[in-house]
């Protein structure tokens, strides 16, 4: 995730894949799909008793995304999802390659995760390694009823058998490029850009 002051203030080599109007459209569509999402135990439970899923964003872009998704759900469907945040720094599989790194954000769940429906929210799905780590974080807090993966963009390039249950947009990004979510000072989503990877 990249902080920029305004939508125009981007690196010179960046190309915008999704601008704010496109993001608005994606959010609205994703909210609708979340609303319509089926869960394994739905058949056993009357509609009124079906628990509402938490939106747990992965630090840091996923947290910003989850917050805005929740706002759209509240606007369009009249309920406010509980928000959580998950940091995967201490669960990464490349600690031995990259050395120590600062923790990016806090891990905070709205309550006891056991029996909960959880939507794991991330901005850009790439190798799948972050999702593997995030699942492990979640499991270390308890045993959720079910976990679904929601991503705004899927750029391909999976290295682990991970697939999103809900994908906002599929993006065409080459291996040598990086796709980044841009947010402003208040962590509001601005755009998704693509640019050459840092050497």
């Amino acid at each position: 995730m990249r902080h920029v002051l305004n939508a125009q203030d981007l690196p010179a080599d960046a190309r915008v894949l999704l601008d704010r109007p496109a993001i608005d459209a994606v959010l609205t569509q994703m909210a609708a799909e979340i609303q319509a999402m089926a869960w394994p135990r739905d058949v056993e439970l009357p509609l009124a008793d079906r628990p509402k899923p938490w939106l747990c964003g992965i630090q840091r872009g996923g947290v910003a995304l989850a917050k805005e998704l929740a706002e759209v759900i509240a606007r369009d469907y009249g309920w406010t999802p509980e928000l959580g945040a998950i940091d995967v720094t201490l669960y990464r599989d490349d600690t031995w390659l990259k050395g120590p790194r600062a923790v990016e954000g806090v891990t905070r769940l709205p309550g006891d995760v056991s029996g909960q429906r959880v939507l794991l929210v991330d901005d850009v799905l790439f190798t799948g390694r972050t999702i593997r780590a995030a699942l492990n974080v979640l499991m270390d807090f308890g045993r959720p009823e079910a976990v679904r993966l929601v991503v705004m963009a899927d750029r391909g390039g999976r290295e682990l058998p991970v697939a999103a249950d809900l994908t906002g947009r599929k993006l065409d990004v080459a291996r040598h490029e990086s796709a980044e979510l841009c947010v402003d000072g208040q962590n509001r989503l601005l755009s998704v850009i693509v640019r050459p990877k840092n050497p």
Partner: peptide
């Protein structure tokens, strides 16, 4: 006070982590 945290956000200032041999 939660150390290092900017009030009102869930993210932290990003300082590069120096190795500690």
């Amino acid at each position: 006070v939660e150390p290092g945290q900017t009030p009102g956000t869930d993210t932290l200032p990003q300082a590069p982590q120096e190795p500690l041999r």
